[in-house]
Computed example of a mutant assay.
Amino acid sequence: MSTSTYTVTGMTCGHCVSAVSEEVGALPGVTEVQVDLPTGAVTVTSDTPLDDAAVAAAVEEAGYELAGR
């Protein structure tokens, strides 16, 4: 198991949380996605370490920006 935490900017509501969770959760190997709306922290648990570029692409697909890890 691997856990990584990322910072996502632009999220303002529950729909934002849902969109990011859905896109990141669809990445291969992801088993859990937890989003903290006030801080923008997105914690991703996966079977194997994730490629940061793939996470960034999923966040952008949801309409938001990955600000860092």
Rank of each mutant, 00 (worst) to 15 (best):
M1S: 10
S2L: 00
S2M: 03
S2K: 09
S2D: 11
T3A: 12
T3H: 08
T3Q: 15
T3L: 13
S4M: 03
T5L: 10
T5K: 13
T7I: 14
T7N: 09
V8I: 05
V8C: 03
T9C: 00
G10A: 02
G14R: 04
G14K: 06
G14T: 10
G14H: 02
H15R: 11
C16D: 03
V17T: 14
V17E: 04
A19E: 01
A19Q: 03
V20P: 04
S21E: 12
S21R: 10
S21Q: 12
V24P: 01
A26N: 12
A26C: 01
P28F: 04
P28H: 02
G29H: 06
V30C: 08
V30F: 02
T31F: 05
T31W: 03
Q34P: 00
Q34T: 15
Q34S: 14
V35W: 06
V35D: 01
V35Q: 05
D36E: 14
D36K: 11
L37S: 07
L37P: 04
T39Y: 13
T39G: 12
G40N: 11
A41D: 14
A41P: 05
V42I: 10
V42K: 05
T43D: 06
V44R: 04
V44W: 04
S46R: 11
D47H: 04
T48S: 13
T48E: 13
P49T: 10
P49S: 10
L50F: 07
L50Q: 07
L50S: 08
D51L: 08
A54R: 11
A54W: 02
A54V: 11
A54G: 12
A56T: 09
A57L: 02
A58E: 11
V59S: 10
V59C: 10
E61G: 07
A62F: 07
A62N: 09
G63Y: 09
G63T: 11
E65F: 05
E65Q: 15
L66T: 05
A67D: 11
A67R: 08
R69M: 08
